[in-house]
Computed example of a mutant assay.
Amino acid sequence: MIPIRSIVVSAVLLSEFDGQFKILLMKRVKGRFWSHIAGKIESGETASQAIVREICEETGIQVQQLYSADYLEQFYEASANVIELIPVFAVYCDKQQAVVLNDEHTEYGWFSLDEAVEKAEFGGQRLLYQYLWENFVNRQPSALLKINTY
């Protein structure tokens, strides 16, 4: 048997630069790969509270427009012998959003979809970025997916 675990949340942040949306990716210290934001849910937090906290901790960004991405990242974590299910959130940031990294990352960049897909280490990341682009950049997301952050 392989247990299913869901203790992590993730988010893809979008910001406009010269009229074009870009995806925020950060290079992790641990593993040294490019990724979107992710972190563990702390005791007493909802998934949306956890991702708002993680975004602030990792980037200094105060979330104003949070959406459920209506997507679950899923993968097998061999070291723990579990299947991870991670709810994904989408965040619209201010235009040309500034980022202040914490010590979990060495660098960051705002990337086009093609650039983000090229930098993605894992196939699941590439699928996520393409899905998010289709449903949050190419079309307006459903208002039913919007989450109040206050």
Rank of each mutant, 00 (worst) to 15 (best):
S35A: 13
A143T: 15
M1K: 13
D94A: 15
F17T: 02
E73H: 01
F89T: 03
Q96R: 09
L85P: 00
V99N: 01
V91T: 08
A38W: 02
S15W: 07
R28W: 14
Q64P: 06
E42G: 02
V29P: 10
I41Q: 04
E118K: 14
I7G: 08
T106G: 12
I7N: 15
R28K: 14
G123R: 14
V117E: 01
I4T: 08
A47V: 06
F75I: 12
Q49C: 06
S48L: 04
I37T: 03
G60F: 10
Q130A: 03
F122D: 00
K30A: 07
G123Y: 13
S6N: 00
R32C: 15
D103W: 07
E16H: 04
A11G: 01
F111C: 01
E57G: 01
E77Y: 13
S15K: 05
R32T: 10
D103H: 09
Q96V: 12
A38S: 05
K22I: 00
V12P: 00
Q140W: 04
A47W: 10
Q62T: 10
V9E: 06
A98S: 13
I86Y: 03
Q64D: 09
F122K: 15
L85A: 04
G60W: 10
Q65P: 05
Q65D: 09
W34G: 03
G124P: 04
Q96E: 15
L66D: 03
G19N: 01
Q130T: 05
Y76R: 14
